[in-house]
Nucleic acid binder design. Structure first.
Lengths: 233, 233
DNA sequence: CAGTGGTCTAGACCACGAT
DNA sequence: TCGTGGTCTAGACCACTGA
């Protein structure tokens, strides 16, 4: 018989997936090491490594030096969310995007904000509030604090032509961020801005963005009722 | 002068990140090709490739054959969410996990469910309803439909010892899934089960899981008020 | 058509960590 | 201790796609 050939790392990955789904390699099972698989598949070890490493990144395999590679018993599904600029989201839905600046002021933030951003409680920050529209309908409400000592150029920007979201991406580098998703009941102010009933359940995103050890901006985006964030596993 | 050496793909990646953050390579800029960078960094092209490919996966670089590699102008942040078994979530918070089966029946699902799962409207499915508890307090409410023609063994399982969540992971392979996050107001039934006020804003996850072209299970998980799903960018 | 990234190979050395 | 995955190298060929 001729040995089946798996010449690309994708084809190796597919074969491994097939064996996992077919329960030839059941959950928790130790699978052969890279060298053996390379020989069986008729390819180099690097190719097998690429295939297995990629599967491990999705949580389907558990790899440890010396201990070998196992099929994950409790696969922790890794869902990747694309957090893009809101304008992109709206336009991707085939709708016309627009935004409206509601408030812009330089003021002392609530202590919860200054604490989260590791700023002194007396330091003023730039506060912005804006409404994002899709086909003229309220889509999301944005509340944002920007540290002027970190992004001084923001003081000169009016943010009526370009959303703060996009302006910051272009002008303020960031290294990492924390993000949280949750649900809140609409306050009266939110309800009025979004054109919904007070108390309606709203999907929200809270994001805190850092450049090295400096907090850059803190934003809460409150979506209109019914908003869904989708992805695949 | 001695050329700086970047011998690991991580160190190459850090140097590239540094140049991006320092605006040496501003957003939208075309950066040198792999071969040139390899020479400059004193490493092989494969090492540069690994560094740049990994950055491209996070959305920070945009790579195209022949066109070269550019710094993304509008980086679409890729947030990776770990969707694990609820028991793991609770235990990771240092709380005691428990669950309670509320309902278990074989019945005809609503047409919305059979349609989404591409099952005939007259075919009965297994319906489960369970409450997940953390330290004895309601944590999440789970509503699930399972296709018995796809997972016949489920008919024999009582699901009082093990949550359906974990049982399915162990017994029903899946190839992919759709997942959606949103917010709803608590119904009276949900409010009672979760011990909150009716109308409270609840964070929910809807998931539809597939094995090849067969829908396996459809589940809605409704979390108690205040629940947050966190991740990093 | 030609430049760029995408990938494969064979071999090598190394870091980690289970035993 | 020593098996396993993690990585690097130098070279090669290929696929895609912009000019």
């Amino acid at each position: 018989m001729t040995k089946p050939q798996f010449r690309s790392w994708q084809s190796v990955q597919e074969e491994v997936l097939r064996r996992i789904h077919a329960r030839e390699w059941p959950p928790g099972d130790l699978i052969p090491n890279e060298a053996d698989l390379a020989e069986e598949f008729g390819c180099s070890r690097a190719t097998v490594n690429r295939a297995l490493r990629t599967l491990a990144e999705t949580g389907l395999l558990d790899r440890r030096r010396k201990a070998g590679t196992r099929v994950a018993a409790q696969p922790v599904a890794k869902a990747t969310l694309d957090i893009s600029v809101i304008r992109m989201d709206v336009e991707a839905r085939g709708q016309r995007y627009d935004h409206r600046l509601i408030a812009r002021k330089t003021t002392i933030p609530p202590t919860a904000v200054s604490a989260a951003m590791q700023s002194s409680p007396e330091t003023a920050m730039l506060y912005l509030k804006a409404l994002h529209l899709a086909d003229g309908q309220p889509y999301a409400l944005e509340d944002r604090w920007i540290r002027l000592d970190v992004v001084p150029e923001a003081a000169e920007e009016r943010f009526d032509e370009i959303s703060s979201n996009e302006w910051l991406l272009r002008h303020a580098p960031y290294t990492h961020g924390d993000i949280a998703f949750s649900a809140v009941n609409a306050t009266d102010v939110e309800a009025q801005a979004l054109g919904c009933a007070a108390g309606a359940a709203l999907f929200i995103i809270d994001r805190l963005t850092w450049n090295r050890s400096d907090a850059v901006t803190k934003v809460r985006i409150v979506f209109a009722p019914g908003h869904q964030m989708r992805t695949v596993l």
